[in-house]
Design a protein around this nucleic acid. Structure first.
Lengths: 187, 187
DNA sequence: TCAATAACTAAGCAGTTGCTTAGTTTTAAC
DNA sequence: GTTAAAACTAAGCAACTGCTTAGTTATTGA
């Protein structure tokens, strides 16, 4: 006995996520979200509680969308080669036409302060750890060295991946691919 | 025939810079600058024109302070080894006690939007290119390969350095040093 | 001593932030 | 057709943003 929602929550989050991705968390205002999502502020707060809620849902969607890439990595038996393909896939994923938007998570990690946004920061760290774990898994396929050496290598790769998120805003595609090539040259 | 300034401009910029470094550009308000610099808003605007002016002066000071490190790199004849030392020096430079603050420039590159802050963005890019040029110079010392291969290697190192700026907020010191070690393993 | 000048204080500007609330419209079971 | 519940609109909240301005205080050369 009540009115129906005139919008689809998944659809509007998709739009919110793309705005956050382009714009960052702090510098995306609720007014901008209102316009981009095409719904009133009241509806935003009714559906997602607050701005943080909208962002957390955006992260979930981002996670779901990048799943197609991480799935490939998860099922890969190619060891390091599988990770390299993940890097290239990620570059493609993070591109919108000619411009690279970086990784939504990395972009936000760099922007957010842990003490003012602990909930968001926790969600972001959780995301990064998932990727790192996949790197470790794949690295173990290649040889049976001690865990310590493998984890150091995973950190090295995470560092390169995090770097790409910034580099992609400075370097061109050719340079980025060359960077990836060198990153994996001696693994 | 007029009153004297009750503050030293270099001293207050030092304080402003440290605040920007910890906090980022956008999320550092003029009120915060007021408190940290210990002077009134009027004085800030009188001395530095506007918030952007305070930041540009902060970048200059940052540049001057990091000069001790880049000088070492500039005078180094050790090729790649010299760059590696720069990485380790930078890590030390970016630390305040136990926590790593990353690089002021990199932090801001990730935060700033080119179209809303073109002046700042230009200053940041200028800074990065200086470092990259030093990398190229040092890499040329080791061998006489074609410029293209050397520049690709410089990009690879820039990517790792940019990565460290984010990594240092996630990984611990031991991990960071291991990352640097692997980064230079086969150069 | 005194007038000119710059440095200071503090209040206030318009615009924006995240969020709320009062009031209206739509829906649907009875 | 009535009524209750949810979805909507739009105005408005206090707190904050970068920046300015009116008024006061200190310093100086004449």
């Amino acid at each position: 006995m009540a009115r129906k929602k005139q919008y689809n929550e998944t659809e509007v989050i998709e739009k919110a996520m793309r705005l956050f991705w382009r714009n960052g968390y702090e510098s995306t205002s609720v007014r901008m979200l209102e316009k981009e999502m095409g719904i009133n502020q009241f509806s935003i707060y009714a559906s997602f509680k607050n701005k943080e809620g909208v962002f957390l849902e955006s992260i979930k969607l981002y996670n779901a969308q990048i799943k197609s890439i991480t799935n490939t990595l998860e099922k890969s038996n190619n060891g390091v080669q599988g990770i390299k393909e993940y890097f290239l896939d990620f570059l493609d994923f993070s591109r919108e036409g000619a411009i690279f938007k970086g990784c939504l998570v990395t972009n936000t990690v760099n922007e957010i302060k842990e003490d003012t946004n602990p909930v968001i920061m926790a969600a972001l760290k959780r995301f990064s750890l998932t990727i790192r774990a996949l790197f470790v898994r794949n690295l173990k396929q290649d040889d049976q060295r001690d865990v310590q050496a493998i984890e150091a290598q995973a950190d090295y790769l995470m560092n390169a991946l995090l770097g790409l998120s910034i580099s992609s805003k400075v370097f061109n595609e050719e340079q980025l691919k060359a960077i990836i090539k060198i990153t994996f040259l001696h693994l």
